[in-house]
Design a protein around this nucleic acid. Structure first.
Lengths: 152, 152
DNA sequence: TTTATATTGTTAATGATTCTCAATATAAAG
DNA sequence: CTTTATATTGAGAATCATTAACAATATAAA
């Protein structure tokens, strides 16, 4: 049994809920995907393997996975929420280029301890950390020299 | 003329757009509100002062204000996006308690330079920074001692 | 078995956001 | 003061992700 399955099972049991087959399919697929995903993508991928799943169940399972700390909200794209699994993916920073739309990630590194200390000062027990930085990537910045003209 | 009006006017002019009366109403109200707001709340508040505004215009103006750097997305609550104005409110951290729903903010302080350095290493020109930490606040943590029993 | 409860899929409902379009304002140029 | 071209608006319709309702089914305990 995978570690995430164990975690989810215990989480559900504690709430008097069951680790059913549909929930197992969802869980497996979530951890087979190593990119951000939205609910429909998740559903489609499971659907390509089995028909024993419905959209509603996927929607219903997302909040459970969030609460269990197995996934986190990543961003929102084209009007849809996107998620990513967490295990093996330490909390990280999302960098989004507002010009070309490129997205990449780095880990927290030196920022992490500082943030944790900050939380301790506030007596806050952190759970999900979501850090997104939007701006212009180096590539677009280099190609955009014509816009430098109106700098004061 | 307020500084934000000046900024918005220049931003619009650069795009060949105009600072019209409805846009002025929206801008004013945004900077009179010192909490997170969603589009409907914004619309209602303007509506209580004048009828010369429509929901569609508010929706249409939000992306302009975002792009102009006058507001930023704060969070999403009850299925709605929420925003906040930026001027005079330096980038900050949102702390959200998953138990009682309390939300408060602190500024970046020591985290900020580290993040900026990180951006420089990546040759990334940051613009919007959005840091949300979800977890349990000290108050809920203290009241929840019965849950400590299953700690390993 | 029986019983009580959780779960599911289907389908309908909700509701925030976006789109359409005709009417109107605006600013520049004669 | 016109004319012209373009940006803007409000009203309402359309979209579409997400939720809710509900009847049928699975599950686990007694």
């Amino acid at each position: 049994m995978e570690v995430y399955e164990d975690i989810f099972a215990k989480f559900l049991a504690k709430k008097g809920l069951k680790l059913t087959q549909p929930r197992r399919y969802i869980l497996e697929e979530v951890f087979e995907m190593h990119t951000h995903f939205n609910v429909e993508e998740l559903y489609d991928r499971i659907r390509s393997k089995t028909s024993k799943i419905s959209m509603a169940t996927v929607y219903r399972t997302i909040p459970l996975l969030l609460e269990a700390g197995l996934i986190q909200r990543a961003d929102r794209s084209e009007g849809r929420e996107r998620y990513e699994h967490i295990l093996g993916h330490p909390k990280h920073i999302h960098w989004v280029c507002k010009n070309c739309g490129a997205l990449w990630e780095t880990d927290f590194n030196s920022l992490y301890p500082a943030l944790i200390k900050r939380a301790q000062d506030l007596k806050f027990k952190p759970d999900d950390i979501e850090l997104t930085v939007k701006g212009i990537c180096w590539k677009c910045n280099t190609n955009d020299n014509e816009n430098q003209s109106d700098e004061k």
